[in-house]
């Protein structure tokens, strides 16, 4: 059984059209079909958060959504966070500045999760940041540097001096 469907969607601001098996999850579609390998697959059962992408601006686990379900929607992956000229999103810059990544495998999921969170919580507390990323597992950093990066990014996005 390998039923497929042709779907159209917006990915990182670009109109994309592709054939996908209906059973293929969104993370495999982004990585395999579209070649956007920045979205990582860590558990495929919805716990680790590495595959988090934004669908219509909301952070979702791309392993828990079928690619066909994204048809007609707008998807943003880590590749779509920086500006066209390569300038990093303030959150990406803060991760670099605060050693918020080591191996970098969980990073795309952390970033996409925090993009939505910071849009809704421009001045979060440390505890709120921790709650926001509690569905994203990192085995390298012990999280403190990620939390520091998120708080710094929030300041930068608000226009406060660091």
């Amino acid at each position: 059984m390998s039923e497929t469907r042709r779907i159209t969607l917006i990915v990182n601001g670009e109109h994309r059209e592709a054939e996908t098996p209906v059973r293929q999850h969104l993370a495999d579609f982004l990585r395999g079909t579209l070649g956007l390998t920045g979205t990582h697959v860590g558990c495929e059962h919805g716990v680790c958060g590495a595959c988090t992408v934004l669908v219509d601006g909301h952070a979702v686990r791309a392993c828990l959504m079928l690619a066909v379900q994204a048809a007609g929607h707008e998807v943003t992956t880590v590749e779509g966070l920086s500006l066209a000229d390569g300038t990093l999103h303030p959150l990406q810059q803060a991760f670099c500045d605060h050693h918020g990544l080591q191996c970098g495998f969980c990073t795309p999921g952390m970033l996409t999760t925090l993009v939505e969170f910071l849009a809704e919580h421009p001045a979060p507390s440390e505890e709120e940041v921790r709650l926001a990323i509690s569905g994203n597992i990192c085995r390298c950093t012990g999280y403190d540097s990620i939390v520091a990066a998120a708080l710094a990014a929030a300041r930068a996005l608000r226009g406060d001096a660091a």
Binding site: R31, G32, G35, L36, T37, G38, T39, H40, V41, T77, V78, E79, L81, S82, L88, Q92, F95, C96, H99, L101, C103, G104, F105, T107, P108, L111
Partner: peptide, 22 residues
């Protein structure tokens, strides 16, 4: 505390992990 050379690619999702090789 110099900037890490790994970050430029990883932070943009342009790392090359084994599953990225196709």
């Amino acid at each position: 505390d110099v900037a890490r050379v790994e970050d430029a690619a990883l932070i943009r999702g342009r790392g090359r992990f084994v599953d990225d090789i196709a």
